[in-house]
Computed example of a mutant assay.
Amino acid sequence: MAAESTHPDAATLDVERWLLDWLRVPQPALGGRTPEELLNTPDGVEPVSRVLGAIMSCTFQ
């Protein structure tokens, strides 16, 4: 996401750190569950992907 961004802060974003932190924080868009929890379930990849897509479309443009 950051590599495709034209946002000035994207060049200095530590993507790995951001993702590791994000995976462990309860997300309202995921019903208060963490992405990490959902990725360990059969149906969890799709909602996590959807939220990441929304973040990408809003944050890094």
Rank of each mutant, 00 (worst) to 15 (best):
M1G: 09
M1S: 06
A2E: 14
A3W: 12
A3V: 06
E4Y: 01
S5W: 12
T6W: 10
H7I: 04
P8T: 09
P8V: 12
A10Q: 06
A11C: 04
L13T: 08
D14R: 00
V15D: 10
V15C: 07
R17A: 15
R17M: 12
W18C: 00
W18Q: 05
W18F: 15
L19I: 14
L19G: 00
L19N: 08
W22F: 09
W22N: 01
W22Q: 11
W22C: 07
L23Q: 00
R24I: 09
V25T: 15
P26D: 10
P26Q: 04
P28C: 00
P28K: 00
P28A: 02
A29L: 12
A29Y: 04
G31P: 03
G31F: 09
G31Q: 10
G32H: 01
G32R: 03
R33Q: 13
R33W: 07
T34D: 03
P35D: 01
E36P: 00
E36H: 08
L38N: 00
L39N: 08
N40S: 09
T41G: 01
D43M: 04
G44M: 04
V45S: 05
V45D: 09
E46M: 03
P47A: 05
P47G: 02
V48C: 03
V48I: 07
L52N: 05
L52V: 13
G53I: 07
G53M: 11
G53K: 08
A54D: 15
I55W: 14
I55Y: 12
I55E: 15
S57K: 13
S57R: 15
C58A: 15
T59R: 14
T59D: 15
T59A: 15
F60Y: 15
Q61I: 12
Q61V: 10
